[in-house]
C-alpha cells in the first residue's frame, strides 16, 4: 500500500493505492494520526485506487472520527468504487456528519 499526499488550500488529499486490509491499513492509520497531530483535520481521501477495504480498514476511519470532529474537521471520501462504497454504507458510515462520501472529486471542496 502506498499513499500519496497532496496538500490543498483548506484540506489535504490522501490517495491510497491498493487494498486496505488489517495489515496495510496500518500505514493509513499512521498517516492520518500524523496529520491530526499536525492539526490537519480536514482530510480528503481520494478512493479511486482503493481496490478493497476490510472492516479493519474501516476501523481506521472510525477510530479518528471523534478526534477529527472535536477539532472541527471531517473526512471526505470521493470516487469510491462500488464494492468499497458498499462496505462503508453497510457499517452506516454514510450517515455520519463528519464522514462524507461523495461521488466525484470535483464535489470535495464544497464540503470543507
Amino acid at each position: 500500500m502506498t499513499i500519496q499526499e497532496h496538500p490543498q488550500d483548506t484540506y489535504i488529499t490522501l490517495v491510497p493505492h491498493g487494498e486496505l486490509d488489517a495489515n496495510s491499513s496500518v500505514h493509513l492509520d499512521e498517516r492520518i494520526q500524523a496529520l491530526i497531530e499536525q492539526g490537519q483535520v480536514n482530510i480528503h481521501i481520494d478512493g479511486a485506487d482503493i481496490q478493497y477495504i476490510s472492516s479493519a480498514g474501516l476501523g481506521v476511519f472510525v477510530s479518528y472520527l471523534d478526534e477529527v470532529a472535536e477539532q472541527g474537521g471531517k473526512f471526505v471520501l470521493s470516487s469510491l468504487r462500488e464494492s468499497v462504497r458498499d462496505v462503508f454504507v453497510i457499517l452506516g458510515l454514510d450517515q455520519l456528519d463528519n464522514l462524507i462520501i461523495v461521488e466525484r472529486t470535483e464535489d470535495v471542496p464544497a464540503h470543507f
Binding site: L65, L91, G92
Partner: peptide
C-alpha cells in the same frame, strides 16, 4: 439493507436520533 451506524461509532446523543 436498512440500517444505522454500528454501536460505539457515534458516541453521543446524535446517535439516538439516527
Amino acid at each position: 439493507d436498512d440500517g444505522i451506524p454500528g454501536l460505539g461509532i457515534v458516541r453521543n446523543r446524535r446517535y439516538d436520533q439516527m
